[in-house]
């Protein structure tokens, strides 16, 4: 039997493995990259941080021509649109996840449904924006007007209703975070051993009693992680929001009025910014990166605990 050609026929001499060092450098560079990104943005933001300090977060004036910068309206817009998106997407995403993990339908139909959700995830953000301009904006303008007319006394629902509004942005965001919620929740549901289902059925539970009393509590940490990660994604989502939210620099408390988010602010102003405005935008970027990193760290930690509790499964 011949020895494969690549193996040296002479005696094995331990040598320094340069390839290992190369790989090690690559691995360390990936770790340093995150720090480098934050550092680079922080350095550029420094003049604005010195100049405005914490006042940047509490001021609601954004006037580049007078060098007045404050991101309170954008913080509000980011928080409300992401929260609303999560509120809308969670029931739908959970329903699809249940649909995909339980045996409501034969397997081929479930495969099809899964493909469709993956297509939702793969569609570029800017295409969602274009779609939103043509479908969501007229819808929100029409029905938002009706809602504001009849229920305008409820906080956050007062008119006049615009098509490009906080609510429109939340709708498209909900659509965009739905695949995240579905994928992670489905992984949590699939990881539950079938014996749990069989045990519940054997005790006489109906399908939905099993789902509500047994499966959902067991998968709850995974669903919570899915929600947190989806929230982080919604906060950072840019293009579709920039195209639909109306980009108003004023703080308004109605869902049907134009608003702004941190990411949309960056998208709109960076290419024409000069001088202190660049520093102010970098400051806003720094706030955004801190918010999303914080959210994602919490989400990842919850997910990690979930996987450990399920015996180190293969979520996702």
């Amino acid at each position: 039997m011949s020895v494969p050609a690549f193996i040296p026929q002479n005696r094995y001499r331990p040598r320094r493995d340069y390839f290992r060092s190369l790989c090690w450098i690559a691995a360390v560079m990936i770790i340093l990259l995150l720090g480098f990104i934050i550092d680079e943005i922080f350095t550029r933001a420094l003049p604005a941080i010195h100049h405005y300090g914490w006042h940047f977060l509490t001021s609601s004036e954004w006037r580049p021509n007078r060098d007045l910068y404050g991101v309170l309206p954008m913080l509000f817009g980011t928080a409300v649109s992401s929260f609303l998106a999560l509120l809308l997407a969670l029931p739908l995403g959970l329903a699809v996840a249940l649909f995909l993990s339980e045996n409501f339908l034969p397997r081929p139909m479930r495969q099809l449904m899964r493909m469709i959700v993956e297509m939702l995830a793969a569609t570029p953000s800017v295409v969602y924006g274009l779609w939103g301009i043509f479908t969501l904006v007229p819808l929100v303008q029409h029905y938002g007007g009706i809602v504001a007319h009849h229920w305008g006394w409820i906080p956050f629902l007062h008119g006049p209703a615009y098509g490009n509004s906080l609510f429109t942005a939340s709708l498209v965001l909900a659509l965009m975070v739905l695949p995240t919620i579905t994928a992670i929740s489905r992984a949590a549901l699939v990881a539950i051993p079938d014996t749990f289902r069989e045990g519940a059925y054997a005790l006489g539970a109906t399908r939905w009693e099993t789902i509500i009393r047994v499966l959902l509590p067991y998968a709850a940490p995974g669903i919570v992680a899915a929600s947190i990660l989806a929230f982080g994604r919604a906060m950072g989502e840019t293009m579709a929001v920039a195209m639909l939210i109306g980009n108003s620099q004023r703080l308004t408390l109605s869902l049907f009025s134009p608003s702004n988010t941190l990411s949309a602010l960056l998208a709109n102003q960076f290419s024409e910014a000069e001088g202190l405005q660049i520093n102010a935008l970098m400051y806003a970027a720094l706030i955004l990166i801190m918010l999303t990193l914080g959210t994602n760290i919490i989400g990842e930690l919850v997910l990690r605990r979930t996987q450990k509790a399920l015996g180190g499964g293969h979520c996702l």
Partner: peptide
């Protein structure tokens, strides 16, 4: 870190 990098908003990559 790689998991966190996947969660970084794409607009931040642009700012960087």
């Amino acid at each position: 870190i790689a998991k966190l990098l996947t969660g970084i908003p794409s607009i931040i990559c642009g700012a960087f």
